[in-house]
């Protein structure tokens, strides 16, 4: 009977451990939202210390970084999934992608600082920040592209190629549309991660906000929300209500994360349903 007691004990412990994990998450969310939500007023966005500029910069830098990384990331992922033969060269590219994925973000930040801030002499700019952030996006994009293309059944390709389509036509008309839900999920994942990134942007986009509201000049400095939270929490300026700003910013970031997580599941589910429906007709 000892074995059965051990079994029951272990089961209880595993339940407790898992409940603890969920409890930590719930504690996190209630703490952050509970402290921050009351501060999310229009004053918080538009007031003299408002975060309107930071919020705009967050999305602007995210957008530019995706513009820069999507073509290369998708291209490399397509190559790995569809063209790459099994040889040393492919192995090298795979090793590079995995290595790039493991590079700590602060190392990306310093690299961006050497290249964009010092070598090109741009100083802290939205452009330099976006370009460096694009490097962080790249390996994840390559991986999700490769995975979603590999999930497309072989027979789709064979049917298209057998009809005389070229590889490019097959990709464009058959493989990419089928893989679209997976690709969108992957891109949302990348976007969510890029939106919260801080270490890279401190050294490339800087910690200042343009005084012009919604400044789209890519050569202006661009502090994002995440960097702002770091700045107000680590060096609070005297005389400002830094703690309230930090509470509100943290809550805003968490809301953005939750929205992204919802976006992660919804569009792909919708697309899948639409495709299934179309196939039935």
């Amino acid at each position: 009977m000892k074995a059965h007691q051990a079994d029951r004990f272990a089961t209880i412990m595993l339940w407790i451990g898992s409940l603890a994990i969920v409890a930590i998450l719930i504690a996190f969310l209630t703490l952050i939202l509970g402290r921050g939500l009351p501060h999310l007023t229009s004053e918080f966005f538009n007031g003299p210390d408002g975060v309107r500029g930071q919020l705009f910069n967050s999305f602007y830098i995210l957008f530019l970084s995706l513009v820069l990384s999507l073509p290369v990331g998708l291209g490399a992922g397509i190559y790995m999934a569809e063209y790459a033969p099994k040889n040393k060269f492919t192995d090298l590219i795979r090793l590079s992608t995995e290595s790039l994925a493991s590079v700590p973000s602060i190392v990306f930040g310093l690299f961006g600082m050497i290249v964009f801030v010092n070598m090109f002499g741009l100083g802290f700019t939205i452009l330099g920040g976006s370009a460096t952030l694009a490097l962080l996006n790249l390996p994840i994009l390559v991986r999700v592209t490769e995975e979603s293309l590999r999930a497309v059944p072989r027979s789709y390709r064979e049917a298209s190629l057998a009809l005389g389509a070229t590889m490019w036509q097959t990709l464009r008309k058959v493989i990419l549309p089928t893989a679209l839900p997976g690709l969108i999920t992957g891109i949302t994942l990348v976007a969510g991660r890029a939106l919260g990134e801080t270490a890279i942007l401190i050294f490339t986009a800087g910690m200042n906000v343009s005084r012009i509201p919604f400044d789209v000049n890519p050569l202006a400095a661009g502090e994002t929300l995440a960097v702002h939270l770091f700045a107000v929490k680590s060096n609070p300026l005297p005389g400002t209500n830094a703690d309230q700003i930090a509470d509100g910013t943290a809550a805003l970031l968490i809301i953005m994360v939750i929205v992204f997580n919802i976006c992660l599941t919804l569009p792909s589910r919708w697309l899948q349903r639409r495709q299934l429906g179309r196939n039935k007709v």
């Binding site: 073509p71 290369v72 990331g73 998708l74 291209g75 490399a76 397509i78 190559y79 790995m80 569809e82 063209y83 790459a84 090298l92 590219i93 590079s96 992608t97 290595s99 790039l100 590079v103 190392v107 990306f108 690299f111 490097l135 790249l138 390996p139 390559v142 070229t166 590889m167 490019w168 036509q169 990709l171």
Partner: peptide, 25 residues
């Protein structure tokens, strides 16, 4: 035919670019 060739080269060069980036870093 050329479109097919061109896209293939573009995909290979993106993959090579990823390798170059990590070497640059």
């Amino acid at each position: 035919y050329y479109n097919d060739r061109l896209s293939r080269y573009l995909f290979i060069s993106s993959a090579v670019l990823v390798s170059l980036i990590i070497l640059c870093i």
